[in-house]
């Protein structure tokens, strides 16, 4: 069985991929669908954060992730990867950005490179669900509330105090252990001295 391990042929994406592709009704057929998505992927790489309809964002995310992971895996000297990048990126100057900016940024990531967030739709307006698709590590302010670095938020205060109490308890245990050991040692010393005294006698 000299078959290659199939799972290693294609780079594994770090989020749930749709088992079936969306068709996106349009007059141009499958090719037009891809042209649409090329525009979206290009816009994502250019602006790093875009707001659009949810289905299209979800679909474009898969292609963008695959493109970045291939770029990381094969580098810019690999012809196939270059062709793929040339196909997916409509504005050609962004190919440089892909290899010189995004590849170094995501080289050591072991999570997804993009983030997809559902956002409320504008009222009154169309009823389609909206989403924001962004590249991680972009320079914009975060969309999600920061609950981990702000240590003043109530759950962080409670956790920090719990940690302190736990440490104190552990230190007390260690101190008690040391005390016990020292006592034992001094007892031994005393008894040893007694023995010496006995032998000298």
């Amino acid at each position: 069985m000299n078959q290659a391990d199939v799972s290693k042929l294609v780079s594994q994406l770090k989020f749930r991929v749709n088992p079936r592709l969306r068709k996106f009704r349009n007059s141009g057929g499958p090719e037009e669908r891809l042209n649409w998505l090329r525009k979206t992927v290009t816009a994502l790489i250019k602006h790093e954060r875009i707001e659009l309809n949810y289905p299209r964002a979800d679909e474009a995310r898969m292609y963008a992730e695959r493109l970045i992971s291939d770029a990381i895996r094969y580098g810019d000297c690999h012809k196939t990867t270059m062709d793929v990048a040339d196909y997916w990126i409509v504005e050609k100057q962004l190919i440089h950005k892909l290899f010189k900016v995004l590849v170094p940024r995501y080289e050591h990531y072991n999570v997804a490179y993009t983030r997809l967030i559902k956002v409320p739709r504008v009222y009154p307006g169309d009823t389609l669900p909206k989403a924001v698709l962004e590249l991680k590590g972009n320079p914009y302010p975060s969309l999600l509330p920061d609950t981990s670095t702000n240590r003043g938020i109530i759950h962080n205060v409670l956790l920090d105090e719990a940690k302190k109490a736990y440490r104190q308890q552990k230190y007390a245990e260690i101190a008690a252990k040391i005390d016990a050991a020292e006592e034992k040692f001094s007892d031994l010393k005393i008894s040893g001295k007694d023995e010496k005294n006995v032998s000298s006698l």
Binding site: T147, I153, I154, H155, L158, L159, E161, A162, A165
Partner: peptide
């Protein structure tokens, strides 16, 4: 007792730590 605001979501393990401390 211990409680958290509705807007703060915490995993059960971390919440368990807070609960344990609330027993003292």
């Amino acid at each position: 007792g211990v409680a958290l605001p509705k807007s703060i979501v915490l995993n059960h393990f971390a919440y368990g730590i807070i609960e344990d401390r609330g027993k003292v």
